[in-house]
Design a binder for these strands. Sequence first.
DNA 1: TAGTGGTCTAGACCACGGT
DNA 2: CCGTGGTCTAGACCACTAG
Lengths: 238, 238
Amino acid sequence: MIQEKEPRYLQIKNTYKRNILKGKINPGDYLPSENELCKKYSITRTTARKALEDLQKEGYIERIHGKGSKVKERRQSLGLLNVKGFSEAAGNNVRTEFIVKPKNVVWPNSTIFSISEVESKNPCIHFKRLRFVGKAPVMVEENWFSQHGLKDFIDTPFIEGSFFKTLSQKYLIEIIGSEQELRAELANQNIASKLKIKEGTPILHISIKFITNKQDLNIYGELFCNTEKYPIGNQYIL
Amino acid sequence: MIQEKEPRYLQIKNTYKRNILKGKINPGDYLPSENELCKKYSITRTTARKALEDLQKEGYIERIHGKGSKVKERRQSLGLLNVKGFSEAAGNNVRTEFIVKPKNVVWPNSTIFSISEVESKNPCIHFKRLRFVGKAPVMVEENWFSQHGLKDFIDTPFIEGSFFKTLSQKYLIEIIGSEQELRAELANQNIASKLKIKEGTPILHISIKFITNKQDLNIYGELFCNTEKYPIGNQYIL
DNA sequence: TAGTGGTCTAGACCACGGT
DNA sequence: CCGTGGTCTAGACCACTAG
């Protein structure tokens, strides 16, 4: 086991980050000033500033000259398009149900993304899920990907119910990018019944390709979202 | 007229930024090390670091422990929204028309993004455009932002008709991130008439906040897109 | 005027990369 | 080994906000 010493500024940054995320510190509140942090943790202003600057860079606080470090308002949205996935963004109020469990299928004719030869030579895994916020179904999600390097995927349950967590923890596969195509459409009878909305309600249709750190493994998805109450959030920072 | 003294680290940062943009320094080259900068400009490492850290944050350089500050190959792709076919597939077949030219307005009550104090204390600039692919209008775009640090913005035409090119080249302002909220909606009478579609056609409504490298300058936008023929593409790499 | 964040100096020790 | 960037100390002066 490698013993890594976490820098002081990171410890302090993460302390406040956790407290903001947990709701112990609320939007509008002010964090301790730089000088207060210096006393509290026995550090110098350089170190205190580094912690605060990082929090600012990540969008948690706003620093106001002459006033202090104010915790920013964070809206709740689903955050589906960012690489981190669903469960993390929407809190604990989410549930996922299988409509079709993972199994092998023939590769569909993807009209949008082209599939590499290596991908198409391997079997295709497919599954389909329905995602809820509270009791309301908000999204139908369907995924396809090559079995290439994913032994026993079909027979193993997802770690904590999360697809991406399973890829990461069991197979060390990380998402390193994505391409998306977005369309507004009217729900057909099939989607409408699953999302418990009327046929003809406007829905957001997302075709997505997640690019992974493993050669010739991409995750292809089709998402159909009822955005009426829960718009899709998307954040890019850096 | 307020005489603002530009901080030393900013002068140095912008010196190298301009040289990179002008091609005097090429991708793969290394910038002077922190200690070399200290000697060259008679500053301390703190100041040299601040300049280099800013260049890194904006994606111009990569800092490698034990090696140095390497100029990056291409600017980091931020996954900004682009209409598929706008610049590539449609060739030069793209046109933008003003519906409302840039002028000062009172800040709207943004229901989605919270505006910082500094932003709201400065006047708000607003403009509204209609974007075409060929002869077909495909997007209504409306933007708001603080005039903070944007002297003469309203009176100057856009460089090559591009808003972001103007920000970058005239004011050295770069987009370093974005937050978006996506919704599928039915076109109201106003939007429908501009996009030449029937009222009730599904459209993609995007609320977007572009975060810039300038403190307290964000670009807020509302986009209404007819995605029937031209879906919105979105790419995120890294 | 007191307190805050913004900029800056002049040092120090460390971990990492290449020789 | 030396030079690089990463972390950190202990101060300083300034500009801004608010009472």
